[in-house]
Design a protein around this nucleic acid. Sequence first.
DNA 1: TTACTATATTCGTTTATACTCATATATTAT
DNA 2: ATAATATATGAGTATAAACGAATATAGTAA
Lengths: 128, 128
Amino acid sequence: MDLVNVMKALGDETRLRMLNLLNKKELCVCEIEELLDINQSNASRHLNKLSSAGLVEYRKSALYVYYKIKDEATAQFPFLVSFLHDETRKLTKCVLDEERLNQYIDSGITCDELKDGRLCFKDNKEEQ
Amino acid sequence: MDLVNVMKALGDETRLRMLNLLNKKELCVCEIEELLDINQSNASRHLNKLSSAGLVEYRKSALYVYYKIKDEATAQFPFLVSFLHDETRKLTKCVLDEERLNQYIDSGITCDELKDGRLCFKDNKEEQ
DNA sequence: TTACTATATTCGTTTATACTCATATATTAT
DNA sequence: ATAATATATGAGTATAAACGAATATAGTAA
């Protein structure tokens, strides 16, 4: 877990968006795919980068892999706390992502249902 | 000055070392070359990246160009304050760089004399 | 067993980054 | 004017990063 690699991991919009959501809630890969509107391959790869940098950890449960922010990361790099709380909300996409996440949580549906398109997001992210 | 570009600029060891020194003192390009032991082309290019990201600003004086950390950067991205103060000191190279800077300042020599090799640094950075 | 699904990984391609060497630019000194 | 110097930039190259599409892997369900 070295600083330069951590900063490289933070230097990508998709990974910032991932961390922003993971800062709110532990999520599985397919939830992240849907919420960020990215494909499975990219989701997995970017999560792997975050994991290699030591920023996130995961647990496997049945078919799913759940990612969350690693406590040791914020312990070792305290600036991450204010960074994740204050800076990501300045990014339009992060704000929209969070609205999607809240809508998903409030709906009470499962990640399988999310993937099946049961939720029509209120934003029109793909048209922006 | 957007967050992603700022983070990209921070994701490089040489630029972190530059910011670490500039956080202590305004410096001209040739001073940075000597203190970090990098060539002129790289020094200029990395400083240009930091400038493009909005992290540093410069003023020209005679032949020299003096770089410093931009107040607006720390104002817009407050995490930078604790980041620059706390995290860079965890990097061995940054600590050595700072020792070189202090030795340079204490010596009272000019940047021209520094470039002429008038100062023999106490560290053996190039052999590490 | 076979079929299905979530995730990871490989392959090939494209784009971005970092570097060295050489040259251009602009200021100072003579 | 010319020479010297600090800095920036161009050209070429090598390395790394990001991506889509396809395939591999591992767990689940039938």
